[in-house]
Amino acid sequence: MRSALLFLFTLLILFSSDLKPQSDTTSISLLPNKLSILEKALWGERGLFRITGLAPLTPQAREKELKLRRTMLSIHQLGGFTTLGLMLVSAYYGKKVFDGDYSAVNKHRSLVRVTIASYTLTALLALTSPPPLVRREKGEGSLSLHKTLAWIHGAGMIATAVLGRQVRESKTIDDYNRLKKIHMGVAITTFTALASAMIVITIR
């Protein structure tokens, strides 16, 4: 009797230990080793889409996710060029205001709002897209540069908007002239960073 119980206990241990590696292997093969904070929150093993059942972590679901990722990143790229065009037109009217043509103020402000909305939606497409199947440790050169430039034009978009408000709310002529020069300089830097980011990711 004791031998039978010992045999059954041994089988139970072997069976349970055989199941665990399979589960871990499946998880590792379906998701990359490293996930960003947002990717983990949305697409991780215990992410929002997993626990709600909207995107179960299965090979079939991951195959659909990778197709969705390609679509979202393609739209992200198109959105980048759209935002770049909007920034260019916005800068045109901004330069008019800078040169003293205040009749262009409303057009400039409206275009800035549309540009910010386009930029935000474009960024969200990349940030919320499903993770790849495999993520390289160091990443590709052009992709790494694209992400670095994203930090620059992201900070630039925020700084440009804040400076634009400060220009409007400036109390003296000296403050107005000083701030509008800084505002234009930051806007040019932001545009250059975004344009460079689009170029490096397109020609890779």
Rank of each mutant, 00 (worst) to 15 (best):
L68M: 11
M72K: 06
S74R: 12
H76D: 10
G79W: 09
G79R: 01
G79Q: 13
F81L: 13
F81Y: 15
T82Q: 05
L84C: 14
L84I: 14
G85C: 08
L88D: 12
L88A: 15
V89L: 11
V89I: 15
G94M: 04
K95V: 11
K95F: 06
V97R: 09
D101V: 03
V105E: 09
V105T: 10
H108T: 03
V114S: 12
S118G: 12
Y119G: 01
Y119A: 13
T120H: 00
T122H: 10
T122P: 05
T122N: 12
L125F: 14
A126T: 05
L127P: 01
T128C: 14
P130M: 08
P131V: 08
P132H: 09
R135M: 12
R136P: 02
K138A: 08
G141P: 00
G141E: 06
S142R: 11
S142C: 05
S142G: 00
S142N: 10
L143E: 14
H146V: 03
K147Q: 14
W151V: 04
W151R: 04
I152S: 00
H153L: 00
H153W: 15
G154Y: 14
G154E: 13
G154L: 12
A161D: 08
L163G: 01
R165C: 02
E169D: 12
E169I: 01
K171F: 06
T172F: 04
D175Y: 06
D175C: 06
N177C: 02
R178V: 08
L179G: 00
K181C: 03
K181H: 12
I182N: 04
M184D: 03
A187T: 13
T190M: 12
T190A: 12
T190S: 14
